[in-house]
Amino acid sequence: MALIEVVNFEKSFGEKVIHRDVSFYVKKGECLGLVGGSGAGKSVILRSLIGLEKPDSGQILINGVDIVPFNEQQLVPIRKQVAYAFQGGALFDSMTVYENLAYPLRAHTELPETAIAEKIHLQLAEFGLEKSIHQYPGELSGGMQKRIGLARAVIMQPEIILYDEPTAGLDPYNTKKIQELILRLKAKGVTAILVTHDIPTAMAVCDKFAFLKDKVIAEQGTIDQLKTRNDSLIQKFIEGNIL
């Protein structure tokens, strides 16, 4: 059974139609690459998967349960299970790195502070970020902020991770670091959707792709399946020179 399934998803902002019938699914342990031009509505889909945005119609099934009608309270268990790695990290800038990572643990567990501290140290060590533990986000580079944002997103050990352009605007070093982290999480069996314009990273981590174009999913499938299609967008994508 699919772990994530989006069925006939439709969304407009005012007069502006963004999605006109988007459907796709992701099986457990898979990583789906969600690809499309800028402004195609990729972030809106990811945001909808944790209820930050509501579709006008359609279903979003997580583990077979439609979350579209859920209110904020009902969404809490979903949000513990589905992590969102925001484009800019979205760290709380009034808190240190430690406090940022402690935030979800304090909110959702009864762990004593010593256990929380231990978890945070382990997580930061795994991500190679121990040195910045007492710094504020404002003192860190964009790449570091994104990596810490990712560390915060996964500290609750979610089943699903949504990556919103995790490598956009990063230098090759940080891009490589993020790519490694995504692969490591995937090896642990975490299911993921990756929105990106970074084709090497997408090719390295995604099992299959969905192309968002003209308000619908124009094509989807594995790279081998897609190679046989003669859509120019897809061919260019496979050759690695668009988006």
């Binding site: 945001r47 944790i50 209820g51 930050l52 904020e72 969404l75 809490v76 268990p77 949000r79 513990k80 992590a83 969102y84 925001f86 484009q87 800019g88 979205a90 760290l91 709380f92 800038d93 935030y103 979800p104 909110a107 959702h108 915060r152």
Partner: peptide, 14 residues
Amino acid sequence: VTQQIDAIRALGTS
């Protein structure tokens, strides 16, 4: 603007 409010919600808090 920096998505911190979204992050509050995404982390399951209000």
